[in-house]
Write a protein that binds this DNA or RNA. Sequence first.
RNA 1: GCGCGGUUAGCUCAAUUGGUAGAGCGCGUCUUUGACGUAGACGAGGCAGCAGGUUCGAAACCUGCACCGCGCACCA
Length: 751
Amino acid sequence: MEPLVCPAPFLKPYDPNEQEAGILELWEKSGYANPDVCVEKGVIKADAEAYSIVLPPPNVTGTLHMGHAAMLAIQDILIRYHRMRGLRTLWLPGTDSAAIATQSKVETDIYKKEKKTRHDLGREELLKRIDAFTDESKKIIIEQVKKMGSSLDWSRYAYTMDEKRYAAVMEAFVRMYEAGLIYRGDRIVNWDPKLQTTVSDDEIEWVEQTTSFYYLKYGPFTIGTARPETKFGDKYVVMHPDDARYKEYTDGQKIQLEWINGPITATVVKDAAVDMEFGTGVMTITPWHDLADFDIAERHKLDKERVIDDRGLLLPIAGEFEGQHIKKARPLIVEKMAAKGLIERVDEKYVNRIATNSRGGGIIEPQIKRQWFVGVDRPFGTPQGKMTLKEWMRAVVEQGEIKIAPERFEKIYFHWINNLRDWCISRQIWFGHRIPAWHHEPRCIPKPGRESDVEKCIPIIVSIEKPTCQFCDAQYEQDPDVLDTWFSSGLWTFSTLGWPFDYAQGKPKPGSDLATYHPTSVLETGYDILFFWVARMVLMSGFLLGQVPFRNVYLHGLVRDGQGRKMSKSLGNIIDPLDMIKKYGADATRLSLIIGAAPGTDLKLSEDRVRGYKHFANKLWNITRFVLENSEDKYGHGVSIFPEDKKLVEEAEVVAKEVSGNIDNFRLDLAADRLYHYVWDRFAAEIIEESKPIFKAGGEAAASRSATLYALLTTSLTLLHPFMPFVTEAIWQQLPKKENDMLMVAKWPTS
RNA sequence: GCGCGGUUAGCUCAAUUGGUAGAGCGCGUCUUUGACGUAGACGAGGCAGCAGGUUCGAAACCUGCACCGCGCACCA
């Protein structure tokens, strides 16, 4: 007898390329990635519990890399699983403008092609060019994200620089300013002389460099430095108050001594920050260009003198070296010091840490600058009473309102908070959210008859709209700076869900996305941006909504090459996810990034792994062929299931429970591994093999077994769907009997 | 310097929280039997970095050491 079910689609090996585009189209047409559609079509109840993830928006500068692929695979698994479990599930996509990185890239491109700088082009033209670039980039990255099978709700797509997000950023800034959390002040910041902008502490990358370390004669003392070119203004000599070697010197004591450019008066300062064990236990300070020195100067109210300008050129304080670049001046200065007998000895092999801008900039030169800051030690009102941003960030994790997985990252998070300084949020670039502060420039030109009110003019106003002056005709000019890209990223969980539009009287409007989906369920990202982003979201959400932004943080590891090296162009070891999709399919690519990837642990990926999982997709395909060829129809209808077959079904239920449990605990690796082995080693290798003689014998046992295999197949497909959505959906579409015409919204086997 | 990971088969990594070690790839032999040769069957291969300790029992827990990686840090 011929099988009643046509196995034609299964005659060839599984070819992902042949199937994936069609499946993507099917999903897209269904609209099921949008929870509203799911509710409309009745696959999810309107009052179902919500489950939401906001996609960490990929930068528009790049194309999809394996890190993105891993992130997409993990989140899509969580999303598909919860959707199948009947939760009102939203996965919200977006892209990120990546301010500095993007501007820097476009500027470089323009300079290469046209030999023009941004100043040649002007602000408006540069922004136009950047927009053109990002529009193109966005399309590319979105297409690539889709190819991974990501069931994102594109109807809610957001871009960090679109109108709604712009409005959210402005609103946030103004509110924080009014609450006193944002202030403008002169503080030491990380200055990038190459990009001519400040950079936040977290964007700095420390590079080790072997340099010379000089021991200099400073009056009766010996001081050490790796940077002699900064020492012109050093007029304080600092030592530990308990250092017995220097007890003859008293705090505030003046000492005359010969220095680089002649005699100076130095002042003794006693401060416990000095490490008695290091060097001679004595140091001089350069408060304008060193963070630690700045702090000491602040504590003792000392003078701060600037030595180096924004471009890295020495100022008049350097005397004959004025106008020279620090790099070129150093040997000359050393030479002069040596000639004056100020150099006692030199350590040639000193390993120094150099701060560089990880966003493609230059070597950081600390500078004191007037910038905008978020004060992390300033109290504000929260649902738990008054606390500072730091306290809030610590409290919500300590109290378990936010759970971080793997747990060890909580320690790292606390450690970071303890060392957190006020966050410099202004950047001197053009691409980004412009600061809504308005300066009264030029100075007042009084209105006729209001001359006496000139004093009342407010020099700086923070507001979204351009203000006008009541007393004079001068115009307010907007602050030229833009905000750190992480400022807007910090709003991401709620700016994408309708804040501030759907927020009034201190709460979200009922029925709005903000009310339904915030706090989000999970924030899933690489551990490398725990501080940049995760902590900033906690901060912003705490102040602006009095809420946590997410209940769980799940951190995945970095994807490295087969030998554990970072993937990079220069090493030529990049595995391109799009290549892998083309060669082995999106399902195989996904599995290779999931199985064996323990949470928070780096994953070493080789092409062999991906190939291995392509075989698995094929296995599933062939299992299906066998099951359909031996379909129940062949052996008669209305079968009763034999006890040994019932056992098989129960066994599958146990697997389903284990898989669910592992997903709930973010152990996707274990869940996928369990399924892999169940399907291959148990279902295919044992159950199917056992079934062959049963089918040969025919009769009721065969009918029972046939129905059972079919049930095991559909259960396996369902369980595997979050992990390998394409091949499972492709098979599902060919099945003669199924409860739901789309596996994407089929019911998960456990409740 | 402080802190956190890691060290298991030739390679890359697991083992759901103490019960005589597993997978993928690679390797060897066999098999074209009613899904699958992108396969199947069978097999070789690990005294678990080192030294101690706890335990009836440890890869897992404790101590120390070594090496690798990472995070943080005001050694000027």
